[in-house]
Structures are given as structure tokens and as C-alpha cells.
Computed example of a mutant assay.
Amino acid sequence: MYAVIKTGGKQYRVQPGDVLVVEKLDGDAGSDVSFGEVLMLGGDKGITVGAPLIDGATVAATLIETRKGEKVKIFKKIRRQGYRRTRGHRQMESVLRITGIEGAGEKAKWDGETSLMTKAEMNLRARGLASRDAEVEAKPAKVAKAEAPKTEAKAAPAKKAPAKKAPAKAAAAPKAEKAEAKAPAKKAPAKKAAPKADKE
């Protein structure tokens, strides 16, 4: 099932489970958002088109974060006048996870779990720079408890038996000496001086 909604002067086609970036909406991260301006619904019973809206149809979503979008550069120039101006702008936007659609006698819900991880945190994790505290908070409590004893058991044997390594430099030195003894050193051929021309 899908729906076409209108928000921020734009129209979006959404399904349960979709992540959507729209113009800034009021609310904190994790709050529920509902859209009443549904223009069209599509499902098992067919397509329902509003005139212009469908009465009683709603789309539910969860607000993940409100952030600044990508930078847009504004450059102005008047030729032959020495006039150049550069400005930048970052539009505020909201990131949503669509959780349900209802209307025209049909319902559709998303069964997954909405993660409130921000884009900045995702970028840090992709680069391997996320802090360990953030990783522990992101995991469910049951998973963290189940993994804790395993990591402690693995860490304990490593402390008891430190690895012993033989010095590599001492073993390599005799081999080099043997090789030098077998192969006599080659001498470069002596260069002869060029004959000087007699001046008369």
C-alpha cells in the first residue's frame, strides 16, 4: 500500500517503512507526526484519488531528526565591473520514518523498529570514528547483556599467556655473513686516463 501526501508545498509518494526528508517540521526526535493531506491511496482494492483530498485518510510517521541540508552556493557577478559575491545557504529539513497508512477501508503498518541515529553519527560510524558509548547505546539491552560475558571470557586467556617471539635480527645476521663468504667481492675495472693532445 502507498500514499501520496502533501507537505511543505511538495508532494511525496510514501510506503510504510520509507525514510523521507521533508521541509522542517515542529517536534523533537522520536515524536509522532501525522499527515492529513493525503491526495491519493493505492492498495489491494485499487487506487483512490481525492478531490483534492481523501476524507479520513492519514499517514503516520516518526520524526528521526531535524538537521541542516546540503550547502547551496549563491554566486553573483556583473561582468567588467569587478563585482563578485558568493554566499552559502543550508536549508533546515526533517527526516521521517513512515510507520503507517490508513484510509479508504485499508490499513498498512510498518513492523520494524525506528532507529533515531542521526546522519552525522552514521557518517562517523562509516569512517570508524564513532565512540564506543554510542555503539553500546544503539544496541538493545538484551543484546548487550548477552555479548558481555563472551567478551570477558575471551579477554581473560590473552592476559595469562603472553606471546614469546625470537629476535629476528640475530638470526638474519649469520646468513648474511655466509653469503658474503661464499661470493667474493667484485672489484670495479680500473679506468684508463684519456691521452692528452700535445700542443705545438
Rank of each mutant, 00 (worst) to 15 (best):
A130G: 08
K73R: 10
I64E: 07
A156D: 12
G69R: 12
A3Q: 06
A179D: 08
P189S: 12
D55T: 13
G9R: 02
M40A: 04
A126K: 15
A146F: 04
K178L: 07
K169V: 03
A161I: 06
T118F: 02
A108V: 03
G103Y: 07
K145Q: 15
L129V: 01
G50A: 06
A130T: 13
Q15C: 07
E23G: 13
K109W: 00
G27K: 12
A166I: 01
T86G: 04
T151E: 14
R80L: 13
E113I: 13
A153D: 07
P195E: 13
K186Y: 07
I47D: 03
E180G: 07
E137S: 10
V19K: 15
P195G: 10
Q15N: 11
Y2D: 11
S31M: 02
K192T: 14
K186M: 09
P195M: 08
K187E: 15
V22T: 14
V136N: 09
E121R: 15
G42D: 06
K159M: 05
Q81V: 12
A153M: 13
E152G: 01
R13F: 00
E93R: 15
I98V: 14
T58E: 05
L39N: 04
A57V: 03
T99P: 09
V59A: 05
F75Y: 10
A61G: 09
G56Y: 02
A158L: 14
D18M: 13
G100R: 12
K169I: 02
K169W: 04
Q11D: 00
R79W: 06
V33R: 15
K10N: 08
E23R: 14
E102W: 06
G103L: 08
A61N: 11
L116R: 00
K6N: 08
G42Q: 03
V14L: 09
G43K: 03
E135L: 15
K169Q: 05
T114A: 15
P189E: 14
R79Y: 12
G69Q: 08
K119Q: 14
S94P: 03
R67V: 00
T48N: 04
A148S: 12
K10G: 02
P174T: 01
A120N: 04
L20K: 09
A194S: 11
E200Y: 03
P16L: 12
A170M: 05
K196Y: 05
R125V: 09
Q81P: 02
Y12M: 06
L63M: 08
A144N: 10
T58A: 00
E147Q: 15
W110A: 11
M117E: 09
A185C: 00
G112C: 11
K191I: 00
A197Y: 00
T58F: 01
R132I: 07
